[in-house]
Simulated assay, not measured.
Amino acid sequence: MTIPTYILKDHGFGKLSKTESNPRARQRLLILYQYSIGKATNDIAKDLYIHPETARRTKKSYLQRGLDSIYDRPHRGRHSKLAESDIDAFKAMIVSEQEKRAGGRLTGQDIQQIAKEHYNAHYTVNGIYEMLKRIGMSWISARSQHPKADEEVQETFKKTL
């Protein structure tokens, strides 16, 4: 088995850092960029206001693991009750359930029930909102519309007011 080694000239770290949204990954890209242009560890540490050991570890990690090293590895601790492979389907199900409603909106309890019935994932209501935040679903919605609302009557009321 050969251990892959990566070269600091393999990637355009400066360009990558400008488009990276993760702040920790962006800082690591900037460290690698500084190394790629030939700066010394202590100079990098002074320029970026970091400890020299941080710069050394970032470089060492990149040389061993490549570009994947700029992202944090998964940590220990409790994993999500909803499998990673089910997240897209879960999001689609929430959106379709919301669209099926004639009025009102889905609540945390409704989404909790969907997770329990379809994915065997038992969450508290607070846990549901945390999970929605983690998977990138904002739960700020527009004002709900009453199922018996008549738009024509509302428009004529606005015109005659």
Rank of each mutant, 00 (worst) to 15 (best):
H146Q: 11
A142D: 14
Q27C: 05
H146S: 12
Y33P: 00
L106T: 03
K158A: 10
N120W: 00
V95R: 12
Y71H: 15
A102H: 13
G14A: 14
K159E: 04
L67V: 12
S61E: 12
Q112D: 09
N120D: 05
N120A: 00
L161E: 08
R78L: 07
I87K: 02
L16C: 06
S17N: 06
T156V: 09
N126K: 07
S141G: 14
Y123S: 01
I135W: 00
H11K: 13
Y123W: 06
V153I: 13
Y71I: 10
G12T: 05
R105H: 11
A102W: 09
M137K: 04
I7F: 09
G38H: 10
G14Y: 15
H79T: 14
K116E: 10
A55M: 05
K91N: 08
D43Q: 13
R26I: 03
W139L: 08
I140D: 12
R73D: 09
I50N: 09
R143Q: 10
E20G: 00
Q64I: 09
S61R: 13
T5P: 00
T2W: 07
L16H: 09
K9V: 10
S21C: 07
N126C: 00
G66Q: 01
T58N: 09
E117Q: 15
Y119T: 00
I114S: 06
I31T: 07
G104A: 04
G103K: 11
M1Q: 12
L132N: 07
A89I: 03
I37T: 12
K15M: 13
G14R: 15
H79Q: 14
I94H: 01
H146F: 03
K91A: 11
Y62W: 09
S96A: 15
G108Q: 03
H146D: 13
S138Y: 07
R105L: 02
Y129P: 02
F157I: 10
R101F: 02
A45H: 06
A55G: 08
Y123R: 01
Y129D: 01
H118S: 07
T156Q: 11
I87Y: 03
